[in-house]
Write a protein that binds this DNA or RNA. Structure first.
Lengths: 173, 173
DNA sequence: GCTAAATCTCTTAGTGACTAAGATATATAT
DNA sequence: ATATATATCTTAGTCACTAAGAGATTTAGC
């Protein structure tokens, strides 16, 4: 097999492996939401709050791709569950900051323990240098996926009749 | 900083980077479903069909975690859109095999092009050997996540009063 | 072979999270 | 001041989901 062919095969394998593991990651998240008894989007928002800290409702809508109306519902449910708190911005009283309630949110965090343990075990097999390679990849991969998402969204904004036609026999009503 | 402390920091960074990129991956998928005009679960099933080939409705339910009733709806919609075909198993006539219609499904595949291009660009910066490391990691990572999911599900099956209590103030309803 | 139990998909009724559109409240610009 | 913009919430309606069970077929026990 030629060198470039071997590489192409490697890339295909890699792509599939990543697809599989990311699909399984989605399933893990679904299971967490299930066990916690909250909706999927609710958990996603908890995750964003964990990563970004105190953010506005609008920012949550932006990042999740949900409407602001949907976010109102998400925050209502999370607030009722005692997982987050609403705080009006004193500088700009239109804004509502959402922040996690650490004591309660911790309990959700517990559900990630099996995942963390599994990852610890996997990571254990790698040297520091190898881990740095993985970190570099994850960081660049994130940027790549972000850019790809933007590119795809751009496609959404071009008028439907000018898009690379899908001709899907009128999906959805 | 001690060596083990440096490694711990590295692991934390790595975990967060993976979390971010996988979250972004989820968003990419949502966008694909959006542009294609199909539901999220519908796309997830297309993905499974692509990876596993011809599978039964029951298997789809198993893998996605949806009820068989929900799968009936998914397959109805996908079939109407011309993306998949139902075929009764001639050996066991209770079973229904679902398989993609390649010509139509290709059009969905197109929506992954931006992602593939982004990944190609990222992968381009790595040597064959480095890619093999990434492949090894993705493969082992998949197994780890799968095991973690099972562990978490096991938790779901233990009677609620015996679970590490979440005490989430009666979520839902 | 025949009946009972098991297995697989589909149907039905009901529910919860979503969107679109617009209401409300506050901030900014002219 | 008034108009426009921004940020969140409200409302009505829709869609995909679950739970439960029906229908069709296969498997097991006798």
């Amino acid at each position: 097999m030629s060198r470039t062919k071997a590489r192409a095969a490697l890339l295909r394998e890699l792509e599939e492996a990543m697809r599989r593991s990311s699909a399984q990651g989605v399933l893990y998240g679904q299971t967490v939401a299930n066990v916690a008894g909250i909706a999927n989007s609710d958990l996603e928002c908890m995750d964003i709050l964990y990563l970004e800290g105190r953010v506005t409702a609008g920012r949550l809508a932006e990042v999740t791709g949900l409407t602001t109306g949907a976010i109102t519902g998400v925050v209502d449910r999370l607030e009722k569950a005692g997982l987050v708190r609403r705080e009006r911005d004193e500088k700009d009283r239109r804004k509502v900051f959402i922040s996690v309630v650490p004591e309660t949110a911790m309990k959700i965090g517990q559900l990630y323990v099996p995942m963390q343990q599994a990852m610890e075990k996997v990571f254990g097999a790698y040297s520091d240098e190898e881990l740095r390679l993985l970190l570099r990849f994850a960081t660049e991969g994130y940027k790549g996926v972000l850019a790809a998402t933007e590119a795809l969204k751009g496609l959404l904004d071009t008028p439907p009749e000018k898009r690379p036609d899908l001709k899907l026999k009128k999906l959805r009503r």
